[in-house]
């Protein structure tokens, strides 16, 4: 169905980090928001993406924000970085989704929701580290990887999943010995993302707890956040609710705090 060679080929085809983004990141990291905005202006697709994201209701701006320097100014360093990463990940998404009933709008919506709520979680946990704000950006890459690897085998996968409740991650591990989150790590490495980013995302798989207490705790929050979002009607309809296994036991010790933070009644 899916071979190790196909996975290797997918990883090999991940494009290098675009130069404009590389420069934008370097400036954002050094706190040069205005200069970063000027560089980012050169990438029209990035500009459109950021404008689209920050004007979503979840960001709660009353008036439309359209200028990149204005966007970076409002978001601040860590959230600007987070959104530029979101854009980078979106570059990997297919033009037409076939395995999942998604489209660009719905995918960007998921990115925006995850990012905003991740910010709320980190603020609640009183975490200041800027790199950790960007960790959430890598998570939706797991969805893109699943789409890329399994979309050629939809019929077989459906037949298999009607007989045994196997999630895509488990199928991939059993067939190729590598999981979706390992591939996300490969993407992060190729794009020289901070090590903590992919370590949190690996822990957020729910099946590979980290030995680092902080990373593991953030992995739990991210795992629960993912399923909080994937329990929303549009994503259930898109077929995302069970694309990876939800590990209820893994998140049990943080659930009450999460429920209170997200005002779940």
């Amino acid at each position: 169905m899916i071979t190790k060679e196909q996975v290797a080929s997918f990883i090999e085809k991940i494009p290098p980090e675009p130069k404009v983004l590389n420069a934008t990141f370097a400036l954002l990291k050094s706190g040069e928001l205005v200069k970063a905005a000027k560089v980012a202006e050169n990438d029209l697709a990035l500009k459109t993406y950021l404008k689209n994201i920050v004007n979503k209701p979840i960001y709660g701006f009353k008036n439309e924000v359209s200028d990149i320097s204005q966007i970076f100014g409002i978001l601040g360093v860590s959230l600007s970085q987070q959104n530029v990463y979101n854009y980078m990940i979106s570059l990997l998404s297919p033009k037409k989704w076939t395995l999942f009933k998604l489209n660009a709008h719905l995918f960007y919506e998921l990115q925006a929701n995850l990012s905003k709520k991740w910010q709320i979680i980190l603020e609640n946990l009183e975490i200041q580290d800027k790199e950790l704000y960007t960790a959430i950006s890598l998570l939706p890459a797991s969805i893109i990887v699943t789409e890329a690897l399994f979309s050629q085998n939809i019929e077989d996968v459906n037949l298999l999943r009607s007989t045994k409740a196997l999630d895509y991650n488990t199928i991939l591990v059993r067939l190729c010995g590598i999981d979706l989150f390992d591939i996300c790590e490969e993407i992060a490495r190729k794009w020289e993302m901070d090590e903590s980013i992919y370590k949190i995302v690996q822990a957020a798989s729910g099946v590979k707890p980290s030995t680092d207490k902080k990373i593991n705790m953030l992995g739990k929050w991210m795992h629960l956040l993912l399923f909080y979002e994937l329990s929303k009607a549009p994503y259930i309809k898109a077929g995302l609710n069970d694309f990876v296994d939800f590990q209820v036991g893994y998140i049990s010790d943080i659930y009450d705090e999460f429920a209170s933070l997200m005002e779940i009644k």
Partner: peptide
């Protein structure tokens, strides 16, 4: 086998 949260807003989607 639904996963995550099950309420009146999303259960129909399953």
């Amino acid at each position: 086998s639904p996963q995550g949260f099950l309420d009146g807003n999303n259960a129909n989607a399953y």
